[in-house]
Simulated scan of single mutants.
Amino acid sequence: MPENHAPTQPTAQPTAPPRARREPMFPDGPAPDPAGSHHERRIRSFQPRRSRVTTGQAEALRRLWPKWGLDIDGLHRLDLGELFGDPKLPVVLEIGFGMGEATARMAAADPSTGILACDVHTPGQGNLLALAEREGLENIRVANGDAIILLREMLAPDSLSGLRVYFPDPWPKKRHHKRRLIQPEFLDLAATRLAPGALLHCATDWEPYAEQMLEVLTAHPRFENTQPDGGFAPRPEFRPLTRFEGQGLDKGHIVRDLLFRRV
């Protein structure tokens, strides 16, 4: 889902050819509304970003979605061992991966961990699939849709070895703070799907949101801070420095990492 607020790729790339009206862009690819209307109306922490799909991204979606993609329809429970082809493979859920460059680098650096990458941004989905194929990354699966439905209805209790939320939309206006993902209710749900000892890793360059994350995570009884001083963590080596993050640092932004363990 489009939690990551990094800018998309330059628009100068060739785009997919036009399609006939009402014809699905990707008949065997990601659905525009995979969960349909059978789920409750509620405030969501994301909004789809409308941007063009390049020819390369479209081709990756058409060829690779049936192999490595899945729609979050909320209608069935996922067997992660079957999904990744290895029942012993630990799986980390990443919510909001932008264009997928950091996800691909983490998957390449740790092939012994599966990454279930969730987003609703179609160009990013296609880009990540293309990267996975180019780099031979068999440990990536791309999920399309609402991560809350994925957690609540499609993942078994204690099934995740980790959860990553990098640079989610900060919703800076006060009236929009209720849309922020990291809230007590979200942590209640996440705690049921994370195995004991699993790591919840958040990162943001928006200081007020970082402070809120630290406050709600510290107050939650099922998470404990990995930092002895109870504060923010240094960026761990396994989280790559992205292009978007580097641009923010050049502008003087402060990036905060939070590493909490499920107890």
Rank of each mutant, 00 (worst) to 15 (best):
T55E: 15
L189R: 04
A130E: 10
G98L: 06
A203R: 12
L89T: 01
A198V: 01
R262S: 00
R243P: 01
A16D: 06
D86G: 08
P27A: 06
I182H: 01
L187R: 08
R21F: 12
D71K: 13
S161Q: 11
R62V: 03
I149M: 07
H38K: 14
S159D: 04
L199A: 10
K174N: 10
L155C: 04
H39R: 15
L160S: 03
P221V: 01
L116H: 05
G230C: 06
A219V: 03
R44S: 06
A191C: 04
P172G: 09
I43W: 09
A16E: 13
L83W: 04
L80S: 01
I140N: 02
F260K: 04
T226I: 02
K251M: 12
T122R: 15
A109L: 09
Y209F: 13
L75E: 13
D205Y: 08
L128A: 03
R134F: 03
N144D: 02
S37Y: 10
T15I: 13
F238Y: 15
N144V: 00
D28S: 14
P236Y: 06
L241Q: 13
Q227P: 03
G74P: 12
P208N: 07
E245V: 07
D86V: 03
P240N: 06
L181Q: 02
A198M: 05
N225T: 07
G145T: 00
G136I: 08
N144W: 02
A143I: 05
G248A: 07
K67G: 01
H38L: 11
H176P: 14
T226V: 04
W171E: 06
E59P: 01
I148S: 11
E153W: 09
D146A: 08
G81S: 03
L61V: 04
L187E: 01
D205R: 11
M1R: 06
G36V: 03
R42M: 12
D146L: 10
Y166G: 00
N139W: 00
P172Y: 04
L259G: 01
F238H: 14
Y166F: 15
P10R: 12
H5L: 11
F260Q: 00
G231I: 05
G100N: 10
A190Y: 06
H220E: 05
T226F: 00
R179K: 15
G126C: 01
L249W: 05
L78G: 00
F244K: 06
T103C: 11
M213V: 13
D257M: 12
P168S: 03
L163H: 09
A31P: 04
R239E: 00
A147K: 09
G145N: 07
A35T: 08
L217T: 08
T204W: 07
P236Q: 05
G252M: 05
M99R: 12
A195E: 09
D229I: 09
A109T: 10
S37N: 14
A210Q: 07
P87K: 02
P48K: 14
A117E: 03
A60F: 10
T11V: 14
I140G: 04
F223A: 04
I148R: 15
A191P: 10
G69E: 05
A147T: 06
